[in-house]
Amino acid sequence: MSLFDFFTGGAGQTAAKNNAAAINTGLQQGGNALLTSYGQGQNYLLGSDQGLGAFQYATAGYDRARGDVANQYGQTQDYLGQATSAYQPLVSAGQNSLGTYYDAIGANGADGSARAASAFQAAPGYNYAMDQALGAVQRSAAARGGLAGRNATADILKTATGLADQGFQQYIDNLKGGVGTYATGVQGVANGLTTQGGASQSYGNALSALGTGLGNAQATILGQGAGLQQNLGNQFNALINNSTGALVSNNNALAASQTKASENALGAIVGLGKSALDFNPFKGL
């Protein structure tokens, strides 16, 4: 520090300049540090060219879970489809029995009854059983010597009618078995389809839950990213405020230094003037 600085405030100016440079350097470094930290935080959340972030991991996890659910659903539907198909032969086998049964009990009117009679007479074993029964009646009548008589004719009609009645009732009972087979098949198919529908609903519910979970996870991550953005702004604002306060203080110190230098200079000038006035070359003569 030179004597001249005492009167000009040069030392204060130098210090103020150095302080301002230090403050600006600190502002720059602090800003860079905040941006670096913010960038790293955003990379962790949203990912970057160097790797995946939480957002991508959440999406990837959702995709894997959706794929697993879809695969399981496909397997379940395949098994249920096989189980349902297993009842189809029962449906096919018993389906004709249902219509024929309704014909046989008269539910389909005269036309249905005619069809039932024709179907009954065409049933396997009907003609054989009738031939056997009538042959036995004829042999019995011949043995009695009355094959062409009224009694023989009545026996033949009675036997034929009785055999038809008995056989037709058995025919209806057999049809009932076919109807039961059809009902079992239909119920099995219905149960299978109902289960398939339940599996489809469960699949939809699972996908809905996964989608909701993904949405919540993404919303949380994006919220954290917004929080980082807001925090960056707040920290930048605090950094700028602190730097501004430091610069103001530095300027105040510079102003005080310059004021002090001015006072020193003015004091020196006043002192010189007073000394000049007090000087008397003729004093003591």
Rank of each mutant, 00 (worst) to 15 (best):
M1V: 10
S2C: 10
L3D: 15
L3A: 12
F4Q: 15
G10V: 00
T14V: 08
A16S: 13
N24F: 05
L27C: 03
G31N: 14
L35Y: 06
L35P: 01
L35V: 05
L35I: 09
Y38F: 11
Q40D: 10
G41M: 06
Q42V: 09
Y44I: 08
L46S: 11
S48Q: 03
D49Y: 08
A54E: 10
Y57E: 08
A58S: 11
R64C: 04
G67Q: 09
A70Q: 10
Q75R: 12
Q75L: 14
T76M: 14
L80T: 02
T84P: 02
Q88H: 03
S92W: 07
S92H: 08
G94E: 02
Q95D: 04
N96R: 15
S97K: 11
T100H: 10
Y101I: 10
Y101T: 10
Y102E: 15
I105A: 07
I105S: 02
G106Y: 10
N108D: 07
A119K: 04
G125P: 06
Y126D: 01
Y128A: 14
A133F: 00
V137I: 09
Q138V: 03
Q138C: 05
R139G: 06
A141R: 01
A142E: 01
G145S: 06
A148R: 15
L157R: 14
L157F: 09
T159Y: 03
A160V: 04
A160H: 01
G162K: 14
G162H: 11
L163C: 06
Q166A: 15
G167I: 03
Q170V: 10
I172C: 05
N174D: 12
K176Q: 13
G177T: 13
G178T: 09
G178D: 03
G188H: 01
G188K: 00
A190T: 14
A199K: 03
G211A: 04
T212G: 07
L214D: 09
L214V: 02
Q218D: 09
T220F: 04
L222R: 15
G225V: 00
G225S: 06
N231M: 08
L232G: 04
G233H: 00
N234E: 10
Q235L: 08
F236N: 13
I240A: 13
L247H: 01
S249R: 14
N250T: 13
L254M: 03
A256P: 02
S262Y: 08
N264F: 00
I269H: 11
V270A: 11
S275N: 12
D278A: 13
F279R: 15
P281D: 11
P281S: 14
F282N: 15
K283I: 02
